[in-house]
Amino acid sequence: MKKILSLIMLAVIAVCVNAQSKNKVRKIEYNSAYNYEVVSLSVGVDGTKLVKVYGYGRKPEDAVRNAKELGVACALFRGFPAGADGSVATTPAIVKDPSEPAKHQDYFNKFFATGGQYLQYVNASSDGMPTDRVKVNKKTYKVGVTLSIAYDELRKEMERQGIARALNSGF
């Protein structure tokens, strides 16, 4: 009987440890600077990109806010992938030099602060709360938001700040 009990205890501990490590991985992934879940939807009007970005948060509203932040960060540092059916080509990152974010850390902290300048370059292109949402665990919602990113305006701002190189720089 004792043996059976100890075996059950061991199994429970193993499950808990596994769940904890899964949570840890998830937490690391949420906070990763490289973790963007983005899909290019279609060609936006002049100078904009229409993308679907997935954000995470304790409430759906927080997840939408996170998605907006991630959408702008993705345009800046990673670029958008090509559309699934090939109808939209790849969009390159505005900031190509990987050392630039660290060099301008103060600027980006301010840029991405709550209610910061980044909101000027992103628009949710649907009214109300997005229906594409999943509760991934007790504390976290994952929400997919269709966003219109003002890519050209964002690029011009980065060129003005000297963070991105303009096509004609040096000539």
Binding site: S42, V43, G44, D46, G79, A82, G83, D85, G86, S87, V88, A89, T90, T91, P92, Y151, L167
Partner: peptide, 28 residues
């Protein structure tokens, strides 16, 4: 690349869409 097929959009709109779709990649 090839654009998304459409039965309603006029050819000039499809051409414009193709340019907008590819120019950023090209300029990059």
């Amino acid at each position: 690349g090839a654009g998304r097929p459409s039965s309603s959009a006029a050819p000039d709109l499809l051409l414009e869409e193709a340019v907008l779709s590819h120019m950023d990649e090209f300029i990059g």
